[in-house]
């Protein structure tokens, strides 16, 4: 054993210092930083996962609501359509009724007019016929009342 021992102790101390400054310090900081980032990443992933779940639940909820709304709208529309059809039917029926009544009235009017014409024709025919049968002149004015009463009975 000799001075080499002291030399090696000095070298040892110097080497510890440089390993500390150049290697241990930067590298431990780096490893800590990396560990921190990994931790952050995992936390962010966890958060993302959680958010995704929330969003999925929300999406399902929204879908459900939309479906319910749609079916409600559909029901309303069907109801509306039924009402419209019902209304149209009613209107059509009323219109038909009205047309029937109008037609009937027209027929009645025609019939009355025909009756009138017939009555007039019968009156004149009966006068002519009576004149022919009696072969003498009958004063139409004297018997108008009689003829009219006959015609009115038609």
């Amino acid at each position: 054993m000799n001075l080499t021992l002291l030399g090696q102790m000095g070298t040892f101390a110097v080497l510890i210092f440089f390993i500390w400054r150049f290697l241990w310090g930067p590298l431990t900081r780096l490893l800590e930083e990396r560990a921190r980032r990994v931790q952050d990443g995992l936390a962010a992933a966890e958060r993302g996962h959680h958010e995704l779940e929330l969003m999925q639940a929300k999406a399902i909820e929204t879908m459900k609501k939309a479906r319910a709304e749609a079916s409600e709208l559909l029901a309303q529309a069907e109801h509306q359509a039924l009402l419209v059809i019902e209304d149209a039917k009613r209107q059509a029926r009323a219109e038909g009724q009205r047309l029937i009544i109008a037609a009937r009235e027209e027929i009645n009017g025609d019939m009355n007019r025909a009756h009138e014409q017939l009555r007039a024709a019968v009156a004149s025919l009966s006068v002519a016929g009576a004149a022919k049968i009696l072969e003498r002149e009958i004063d139409p004015t004297a018997h108008t009342n009689l003829i009219n009463s006959i015609a009115a009975r038609l």
Binding site: T11, L15, I19, L30, R37
Partner: peptide, 18 residues
């Protein structure tokens, strides 16, 4: 050997990549 370790430490410590 000590110098070698210091030099290597220096170069590696300088170019650390996260």
């Amino acid at each position: 050997i000590a110098t070698m370790l210091i030099v290597v430490s220096y170069y590696v410590g300088r170019r650390l990549s996260l």
